[in-house]
Design a protein around this nucleic acid. Structure first.
Length: 484
RNA sequence: GCCCCGUUGGUGCAGCGGCCUAGCACGUCGGCCUUUCAAGCCGGAGAUCACGGGUUCGAAUCCCGUACGGGGUACCA
């Protein structure tokens, strides 16, 4: 499900949650040429991931079932017949080739392309004849030749349309399926839809819908046309500009709350400067009238920031659970975690969460930060042990002193480890940075790592001491080689 | 072509006729903090409110043009 459509669903959901309405999923599968059997599953998975729970829909059912348009064809046929009976619609046997030729002629003549309402006065005999010949017959809505139609949009206010510019349009296709126009009007009435929230590309079609409603004698729901989401260069968001399906964001390590929050703000604002919000907060502050009327540009950078904000606020258990899959199935093949025992110890991850959460933008970032905790041994680079303003002697001092100190620390807790190691600055004369850099590199094999004391505690005394010992050897070797 | 919608720093928003010498956030730059990286805190740069006309004592805010951007113009949604 694409970001744009998802954001629309989001607004529907927020509105329903705020006003106590129903959030309904309806599958619009009226175009058999574009039918995608996976689409429904993707939509449900996306909604589910974002936590947009349905009140009614296919499978879960509801008072207006069925919720799939291909199963509601009779309803549309009935409506079409009603419109024909009232003279608001008619059968048209103009064939596709004829339409194409017409268009070609118009374009060649520099005229505006469009149907010329030529089928309006067919007799029922002519139609029957065409049917007998197996020709295509559609139902078209008869649009008044003149006049203006006014309609209300919740975000743009009054909209005016010149009906003389609108041609008779198809409401029922030759295969018996309705077009969106008919299906939308019929279903939204039948299902008691109060607010039609959809992309602004529908604005030009609005008069069609109002016309059908008037002819059918049914009320017009509130229309809310939301702006498009565009990529950085202002063009329509597409695959070219990075991920665009919600599930891709899930797979890339974004949290549902962050995506929800970011998307909500892409085309809506609460009216003040609040940006980071929980879903409940957004739902309670959501107002259809505050939806923006101009397109929003998608910013991957701001989404990352938003993700980090939500990761920092997330519940510890939930965050741990979200991190686990990243560690179980790390993205980068060839990494340290390729060949370790599974499953990974969740307690270890959880213990690190407090120091990890403010260091990652997307969930998979944890891998590079804590992979050293899960492997049997690491391969520190001797050169990296020599930090800024350090000489080789200081590395030996640091490693030796820390081994000695950590052997005695009791209990082996963050607090005790910290005070023991910090105490070393006095006895060794090393500054904190000079003392900790070699330890960090020896223990984690990284220059950039999570806070040292937490890392050491989680690693445990035995493994820490072992790594410090190995580090010492590696460094000794390095120094000796340099002498040669 | 015609129709529709839009236009506030690089980006996302606030602004709804005087409180705007245009506010917030992202990003960016500098500083502080600091065991690395972050986070956090402080500060800086960055907008003639697309342009031109009106209306008004007064306009980013209302009206009209122009430009630019987007959308629509299907037996697609």
């Amino acid at each position: 499900m694409h970001i744009g459509g998802l954001r629309t669903a989001l607004y529907d959901w927020f509105l329903a949650r705020k006003t106590g309405g129903q959030f309904i999923l309806r599958i619009e599968d009226t175009d058999r040429n574009r039918y995608d059997p996976d689409a429904e599953r993707h939509i449900k998975e996306s909604l589910n991931w974002l936590g947009l729970d349905l009140d009614e829909g296919p499978e879960i059912g509801g008072p207006h079932a069925p919720y799939t348009q291909s199963e509601r064809l009779e309803l549309y046929a009935d409506a079409a017949e009603k419109l024909i009976a009232s003279g608001d619609a008619y059968y048209d046997d103009t064939q596709p080739e004829e339409l194409a030729a017409l268009r070609q002629r118009q374009q060649a003549a520099g005229e505006a392309p469009g149907y010329d309402n030529r089928g309006r006065y067919r007799t029922s005999e002519q139609i029957q004849e065409s049917r007998d010949k197996g020709l295509d017959v559609v139902v078209r809505f008869k649009v008044p030749d003149h006049g203006e139609l006014e309609s209300e949009d919740e975000v743009r206010g009054r909209l005016r349309f010149d009906l003389s510019l609108l041609q008779d349009f198809v409401i029922l296709k030759s295969d018996g399926f309705p077009t969106y126009h008919l299906a939308h009007v019929v279903d939204d009435f039948e299902m008691g839809i109060t607010h039609v929230i959809r992309g602004e590309e529908w604005i030009p079609s609005l008069p069609r819908h109002v016309l059908i409603q008037e002819a059918l004698g049914i009320p017009t729901p509130r229309y809310v046309h939301v702006p498009l989401i565009t990529s950085q260069d202002g063009s329509k968001l597409s695959k070219r500009h990075g991920a665009q399906s919600a599930l891709e964001y899930r797979d890339a390590g974004y949290t549902p709350d962050a995506v929800l929050n970011y998307l909500a703000l892409l085309g809506w604002s609460p009216g003040d400067d609040t940006e980071v919000m929980s879903r409940d907060e957004i739902a309670s502050r959501f107002e259809v009238g505050r939806i923006l009327s101009h397109p929003a540009k998608f910013s991957a950078q701001k989404l990352e920031w938003m993700n980090q904000q939500h990761i920092m606020k997330a519940d510890e258990e939930a965050l741990t659970d979200m991190m686990m899959p990243c560690l179980e199935r790390p993205e980068d093949e060839g990494g340290l975690l390729d060949e370790i025992d599974r499953p990974i110890d969740r307690d270890v991850v959880k213990a690190m969460v407090p120091v990890l959460r403010e260091r990652i933008k997307v969930l998979p970032d944890v891998v590079a930060l804590i992979d050293f905790l899960f492997v049997d041994r690491v391969y520190p680079n001797a050169e990296e042990m020599i930090g800024r303003r350090m000489d080789e002697e200081m590395v030996f001092t640091s490693l030796n002193a820390s081994i000695e100190a950590l052997e005695r620390v009791e209990p082996f807790s963050v607090e005790e480890i910290e005070s023991a190691l910090r105490g070393l600055t006095g006895s060794t004369g090393l500054k904190a940075g000079q003392l900790f850099t070699p330890i960090r590199v020896a223990v984690t094999a990284k220059r950039i790592a999570p806070p040292l004391f937490e890392s050491i505690e989680v690693l445990g005394r035995e493994r820490t001491l072992e790594r410090l010992g190995v580090g010492l050897n590696i460094f000794r070797e390095y120094v000796e080689n340099r002498k040669d």
